[in-house]
């Protein structure tokens, strides 16, 4: 059974048809790439999947239940984690606090514990701190746990975003241009990291990326969007040679 199933998704902003008739099915454990020229509607698809936008048509199913129209925080709690194209960290907080916040609902305690600082409060706080630290260790950020998030170098901010998304224990991870602004060296490290994360946490990943070398090496299946419509779908090899994709990226051949 598919982990994520999207049926005929459409959304217009005024006269602009951002996404039209988008279909997608992801099986557990798959790593799917979503590519397309600027303004093709990739991030809009992400925002619909995570509940930031409500689609005008179509339905979204996750893990057997329909999530169309649910609020973002509820979709997150069902197991969809995401990162943002333009990094959205909690800038003034420490690296550790950033990750702790994402842990919120995996192990919450009640108001009684909060106000009276019961033993459970301490136990939960310790659990949260340890869990958050372990996520940071995975992404090699543990040494920077006490630093303010905005003071981290760019590449580490990207990694922190992934750590934060992982802290919510997602089944499906949506990465929005994780390699944007990284140098080739960092991109290669990211590639290894994503592959390793996927193995380690048996994650299903949907990825938006402009760096073709990364997408081609990483993804088993690629979807190409243009003007809100899927124009091609297939293995990296098929996509590379698909005339419609080449046309979308490079324009029509002059005859």
């Amino acid at each position: 059974m598919a982990l994520l199933k999207v049926e005929d998704l459409s959304l217009s902003f005024g006269g602009l048809r951002a996404v039209s008739g988008f279909n997608l099915e992801i099986k557990p454990g798959e790593l799917v790439g979503l590519i397309g020229p600027n303004g093709a509607g990739k991030t809009t698809v992400f925002n619909i999947l995570t509940g930031f936008y409500q689609p005008q048509e179509g339905r979204v199913f996750f893990d057997g239940t329909e999530i169309t129209g649910l609020g973002c925080h509820r979709i997150n709690r069902l197991g969809i984690g995401r990162t943002f194209q333009n990094i959205r960290l909690f800038n003034e907080l420490t690296v550790l606090e950033n990750v702790k916040i994402a842990y919120q609902y995996a192990g919450g305690y009640s108001w009684r514990h909060t106000i009276f600082r019961t033993g459970s409060y301490r136990r939960y706080e310790q659990e949260i701190a340890e869990w958050a630290l372990s996520r940071l260790e995975i992404l090699d950020l543990a040494g920077k746990a006490e630093e303010i998030a905005k003071n981290l170098p760019y590449g580490e901010q990207r990694r922190l975003e992934i750590a934060r998304a992982l802290a919510g224990r997602p089944k499906l991870l949506l990465l929005d241009e994780p390699a944007a602004g990284m140098n080739p060296q960092e991109t290669m490290e990211l590639l290894e990291l994503i592959q390793w994360l996927r193995q380690e946490f048996s994650l299903t990943i949907l990825l938006i990326e402009h760096d073709m070398s990364l997408v081609m090496k990483l993804c088993e299946r690629i979807l190409v969007l243009d003007y809100g419509m899927t124009i091609a779908e297939g293995s990296p090899e098929e996509i590379r040679n698909n005339p419609r994709v080449i046309e979308a990226y490079l324009g029509e051949e002059v005859s």
Binding site: H73, N76, R77, F90, I101
Partner: peptide, 9 residues
């Protein structure tokens, strides 16, 4: 927005 995406109501 990030808070909402991290599961906070």
């Amino acid at each position: 927005i990030a808070a909402e995406a991290m599961g906070i109501n």
